[in-house]
Write a protein that binds this DNA or RNA. Structure first.
Lengths: 200, 200
DNA sequence: GTCTATAAACTGATAGAC
DNA sequence: GTCTATCAGTTTATAGAC
């Protein structure tokens, strides 16, 4: 993942959120202290409380931005498609958007994906609704293909979406630009998901 | 995930390790306190130090057992295959083993997979060698197929293994027995990975 | 082997000066 | 808005009784 971009000097609130996202992603929510966030934001720990009520409210903002970001990356690309594009184009575009949302400047999104399962249950409950809406977006995308009979089998629809999105999500654990360009990654991942690993 | 099996009364050391694995998996390493581990193990926190030097040494043992467990699940199934089984049989068997290692009584393995990226870097460094050996096992499995020309494309070999294993690993985030039997999951996942989601 | 008690350090959060 | 100082609670880890 790039992240070459330093936590530049914009509004303090923005620096706090970006620092928190990166630290949450790399060390987890609980292992990240307010003093770590403060230090990376080049501010003192007490000052954080001028901008946020609690550590958990920072978390909520980070999580929401993560979904917001990835959803935008997907929607923008989908909306830019010409009206006569095939369904396969559409899905490949969505895959590219999702991967871009996580891997290219997607500090909030990668944080969201990596920490979600281990955050305090109260925060998880609050954030669930936002997540659900994004999942619904993918469901509606696949729904079309199910109806057209383009998909290879009538697999369980939930398993279908969960597996596809999950396989993408895990790329945060291993993708490094030095392995190959982002475009190559999208091509290879799409190729495997569309047609599998075997010749026939 | 089942985990119906309570932390039964075996050796204290075993109870501590199993409790730790489950708590690490569900809450993360840092958010899990020794008092939580002690409580679930039905022992007092101070007593843990008779069996372990530090919290981190519990972590190391949990991580190692995780790889050990999943590796066994895979090896046992692979070795039980008849000598005339096809390469696809072999891979499906390995997938089944890996999923079983995580999802069926795989507390140590699911803990390992979920927390690895966020543990202290010292522990990560120490555990890397054990992980590498398991990755090598999968590499050698696919190597055969590459040479036989059975795989659909000459994709980047690393991306290949990482994507396949990663897509399996993420099932810990969403698989629930109520969605369907374990056998069904193996069939559906294998089907997608082997031949993709599209009809052609 | 397990307990109680406690040390030493760290945590999220607050108060009040500037 | 940001700082310093500090509170109250928690954390890992240790000491010593049984």
């Amino acid at each position: 993942m790039p992240d070459k971009i330093p936590v530049v000097h914009v509004d303090s609130k923005e620096r706090i959120l970006l620092s928190a996202a990166r630290l949450f992603r790399d060390h987890g929510y609980s292992a990240t202290t307010l003093r770590m966030i403060a230090s990376l934001s080049e501010i003192k720990a007490g000052s954080i409380y001028y901008h946020f009520d609690s550590k958990e409210s920072i978390l909520i903002d980070v999580l929401n931005r993560g979904i917001e970001h990835v959803e935008n990356e997907v929607r923008i690309r989908i909306n830019a498609l010409s009206s006569n594009s095939t369904f396969q184009d559409k899905v490949k575009t969505a895959i590219e958007g999702h991967l871009a949302g996580m891997l290219s400047n997607g500090d909030y999104t990668s944080a969201n994906i990596k920490i979600y399962s281990q955050i305090p249950s109260k925060a998880k409950e609050r954030h669930k609704i936002v997540r659900r809406a994004y999942a619904d977006y993918w469901d509606s995308l696949f729904e079309e293909a199910f109806e057209n009979g383009e998909l290879r089998e009538a697999l369980n629809k939930d398993v279908f979406r969960l597996f596809v999105l999950g396989s993408l999500n895990w790329t945060t654990e291993w993708y490094e630009p030095k392995r190959g360009s982002f475009k190559e990654l999208v091509d290879q991942v799409t190729s495997i998901l569309f047609f599998g690993i075997f010749k026939k």
